[in-house]
């Protein structure tokens, strides 16, 4: 899995244009062939930057996703209020009767 490999750092990742197309399809992005070529190069470059981490000797270090905090803080289950009505949709490109209006989706 691509994302896991980023976090596991040391895995060498090469991206080809099929990978880029697949990621674009999952993100529902319609990209032109030119854009795919450009993004394949960009993504490969970004991922290869992570490979630098492989140069560090991490043998003795336990995998860790964050620094400082060992366990997640929890908050009391008490309402603190929401945005004033209408404010939530106000910044959206399109809305109607308090609802976000989006291109038709099914399922």
């Amino acid at each position: 899995m691509l994302a896991w490999s980023i976090f596991h750092g040391a895995v060498k990742v090469a991206i080809n244009s099929d990978d880029a197309r697949r990621v674009a399809a999952l993100a529902k992005l319609g990209l032109t062939d030119d854009e795919i070529v450009r993004l394949t190069a960009d993504l490969s470059k970004i991922l290869s930057s992570f490979e630098l981490l492989g140069e560090v000797d991490g043998e003795e270090v336990a995998p860790r996703l964050r620094t400082n905090v060992d366990h997640t803080p929890e908050r009391e289950d008490r309402p603190v209020g929401s945005l004033p009505e209408g404010k939530g949709v106000a910044g959206a490109p399109d809305h109607e009767n308090g609802l976000f209006r989006v291109p038709k989706v099914l399922g």
Binding site: M1, A3, F7, R66, D70, H71
Partner: peptide
């Protein structure tokens, strides 16, 4: 493409 949530440390 599951990956660990970087915004939430483990629940202990």
């Amino acid at each position: 493409r599951y990956f660990p949530e970087p915004d939430l440390p483990p629940l202990i």
